[in-house]
Amino acid sequence: MNGYNFAYLDEQTKRMIRRALLKAVAIPGHQVPFGSREMPLPYGWGTGGIQVTASVLGAGDTLKVIDQGADDTTNAVSIRRFFARTAGVATTTDTNDATIIQTRHRIPEKALREDQIIVYQVPQPEPLSKLEPSRAETRRMHALAEYGSMHVRLYEDITRFGHIAISYDYPVMVNHRYLMAPSPIPAFDNPKMHMMPALQLFGAGREKRIYAIPPYTDVRSLDFDDHPFRTTRAPQCCALCGADDSYLDEVVTDDQGGRMFVCSDTDHCETRQAEGHTGTGEPVVKEATAAGSEARGGEQA
């Protein structure tokens, strides 16, 4: 790639982003504005994550990029290729081998290590945005830790549905101080953020915000004492590797209601298959009523 700096961004821009990252790490969960640049991928498609990765990437790093948990989805392929071309770094699909993992909407099933960094692509960094569209007002609310309206929203869910109805981008309290949007990962993944050994960085390019969770930080999903946070996953086992505790994708196999459930984390699934685990491989025919969706799930500490 002629004429482009390592990882596309010029050095001043990377320095600016790293300064924002340092501030973010120093104040866990707090959104730091940064001068997001126009990138060759559109806003909303991971430009924030790409800028964060570009700023922390070094020649010796090994990069993994996933979207919806899979390495081979079109957007993950596109981003991985982008870094291969502009930085020449080694890339991998193996979570174990990666030093930097850029992700859209999932946390890998395998627990991450202290020497790894996970970079999340964030569409909407403001957890209060659906309750209060004015950014000036939400800034004040964060500064004053005025999060009552979020609890009112959860209260209303319980009143209307009998339980909290947020299934992804479930708001969390970071380090007992800041309300944070974890990005649209399924609620199933929220417990992984708590006391994670890896550094977690979050980039929102269009909204121009960066935030971070340093390693071993307290992260709790909001709930009520008598309606504690619960995770949700499809009750089936993976049809390919038999896993009964990973997050599953639902694949429609025919138009008679035939379904197959497979691990969303493709690397996790392939690793298990290589180790000899198998699933039935048979599609499941869905019954008329939707099966219960709260079978297994973590509880928070």
């Binding site: 009552g148 009112v152 209260y155």
Partner: peptide, 27 residues
């Protein structure tokens, strides 16, 4: 008042802002 929030939610808001976290007792 929050017109799109139930009466209970409206009354309970100050309690939640003050740190109450028991849905049943707030209601």
């Amino acid at each position: 008042l929050r017109m799109s929030v139930s009466a209970g939610g409206n009354v309970g808001e100050r309690l939640m802002a003050a740190g109450n976290r028991h849905y049943g007792r707030i209601r």
